[in-house]
Amino acid sequence: MSDARAGLTRRQAHERDLRRRSLLIAGGSTLAVILAIVFLVPLAPGWERVQQSFFNAEVFARTFPKLLNAFLLDVAIFAWSAPLIAALGLAVALARDVRNPVLYPLRLFGTVYTDIFRGVPVVLVVYLIGFGIPGLGLPRPWNSPYIWGTVALVLTYSAYVAEIFRSGIESVHQSQRNAALSLGLSGGDSMRYVVLPQAIRRVIPAQMNMLIALQKDVALLSFIGPVEIFRQAGVFKSLLANFTPYVVAACIFLVITVPATRLADHLIARQNRARS
């Protein structure tokens, strides 16, 4: 009778009850786990030491501003690398798609390029390019680790991004291309105005995941010089003989990457729904 007063149908009332019950159970079990961690972990014999060296509030407060500042360098490197990667990745994807036999070398180049750079760990490319090319004794500013570190990231990530673009291009049905050609459009215009816009839309979620990975991999440049957040955390670690700066760095990364990951997942889920 109370349900009738709330203006709910029997089914709606039933579903509301189910929702309430599952919310209660989920909340209760989560609380239990958190309580267990909070009360049980400190009972471990080494907890005192771990807390001192990893979760030191004083060190956290002291190093946070500087680390946040160093993170801006990560963001900057990310910000200028991402457009370069998008452009080069798209160019390689298109090179791999050319049908004209005259341009076969371009196609071969695209294939070899993606094979090589997808086959080598990012950190190796960063080392080889970041140490190797400045080692040629180039004059300033051409010996900057920023430039060659960026080049290493751009080369590696473009290979992955190109493959994603290419899968998008292939997912656009041949009939779309034929419809464009049948109207008298050139092959280039058919690609540019008909196939690519659809292909790019389809791969946006996958490319967002590449962006998240890139944001994290910027930290690899620390190996060749730039004092970005990971390297700065290392400096603090040595200075203060404490690992908390690494935890700070991890937290700062998470603040950026978790929302981005949720967004990418949301986009993927929406796309899957739209397709089914």
Binding site: A179, A180, L183, G184, L185, D189, R201
Partner: peptide, 21 residues
């Protein structure tokens, strides 16, 4: 199967080829 370009409005579908060609 029509094969309209799904990312364009009807009028853009119609104008694309005359504009480009």
């Amino acid at each position: 199967s029509f094969n309209l370009f799904p990312h364009m409005t009807a009028v853009e579908n119609v104008m694309l080829a005359p504009r480009r060609v």
